[in-house]
Amino acid sequence: MNNNNKANMSAFALKLLKNIPLLLFILVFVVFGLITPVFFEWDNIENILTSSSYIGIVAIGMTLVLLTGGIDLSVGSLMFLSASSAGLLIRNFGFPIWLAIVSAIVIGLLVGAFHAFCINKLKLVPFIVTLSTLVALKGLTLMLTKSVAVEWPSAITGMASRRLLGFIPLPVFIFIVIIILVQLMLKSTPLGRHIYAVGYNSEVAAKAGIDHIKIIAVVYILCSVLAAIGGIISVTQLGIVNAGYGEGEEFKAIAAAVLGGTSLSGGVGSVFPGVVIGTLLIQVVQAGLVYLQVDIYMQPIITAGIILLAILLDSLRTMLEKRLERRNITKSCE
C-alpha cells in the first residue's frame, strides 16, 4: 500500500515536472502581475508577445540546428549584420524596403551556406565554425557601419505597429506563421523526420539511406535565414541599429530552445509548444524585471538564475523518469 502511494506520488511529481517551463511561465506571470497589476494589461501582454516574436524566430532556427546535434553561436552577430546592411542599403543606396529585406535574407542564406560548407566539406566542428563567424560577422558589420548607429526610415518602424485583424501586431503574425510552417515541416515532412533521424545518430541515418550532408546544410541555412529575419523584425520595433545590437541573443535563443525541452545532443525537441513556451518565459521574466524596476545590473543575473532553475528542474525530471523506469528485480517489491 505504502509503495503504491509512493509510486502515485512519483507519477504525479513527474507530470508536474514534465510541464516545468509552462508552470514556471504561469507562476512568474502571475507573481509579476500581483505585484504590479499593470502587468496584466493588454498593452503589456502585447508588448511581451511582440518582443518575443523576434527572439522566438531566432530560437526556432536554433532548435533546428540543435535537433541535429549541432549549434549556431553566430545568430546574434548575424542579426546585427542583416539589420545593419538592410538599413545601409535603404539609406545609402536607395533600395526599396522590400528589396533591402530580401537582400538581408540572402545574406543570412549565404552565411548559413558558409557554415554548412565548413561543417560538411571541411569537417570542422560547428561550435568553432560559428564561434568564428560570431566574431567575424560582428567585425564585418562594425566595418560597414564604421560603428555608427544605422537608422531605419520611419516607414519600417511603422510596420511593427501595424495590426492584422485589428489586434495582431505584424511581428507576432510573422512569428505565428513561422511556428506553423516549421512545426508542420518537422512533424509531417520527410525533411523534418530526417532532421530527427540525423540528430539521433548521423551514422545510423546515413546507413538507412538518408543524405545527412544535405540535412545538415538545410538546418544551418534555415537557422541563419531565420536569424536574419529575426534581426529585421527586431529592428522594426527599435528603428535603430547601434553597435551593441544582437549581443547575447545567442544565449537567449539557446536558452529558449533548451527550456522548451530541446536536447543539446540532438534528436529531441519541438517547436510547439516547446520553444514557444521557452521564449515567452524568458521575455516575461525580462519584462517583469523592468516593471519591478529591478536594478539594471541585477536583471541579467536574475534572468540567468531563473533559466538555470528551469533547466535544473528539467534534469530532475529526467532523473525521476529513469528511477520510475528502473525494473524491480526482487520479489519483495511486487
Partner: peptide
C-alpha cells in the same frame, strides 16, 4: 546488421518508411 540500424527517437512506422515516406499527392507531406 548485428547492431540494429534504427532511430530510437522515431516511431516504428517512421523507421520502416524512413527513406520512402508515403506522401499526399506529390507534395512532401507525409
Amino acid at each position: 546488421h548485428q547492431e540494429l540500424n534504427l532511430c530510437n527517437n522515431l516511431t516504428v512506422a517512421e523507421n520502416i518508411f524512413l527513406i520512402d515516406f508515403p506522401k499526399i499527392n506529390k507534395i512532401p507531406y507525409i
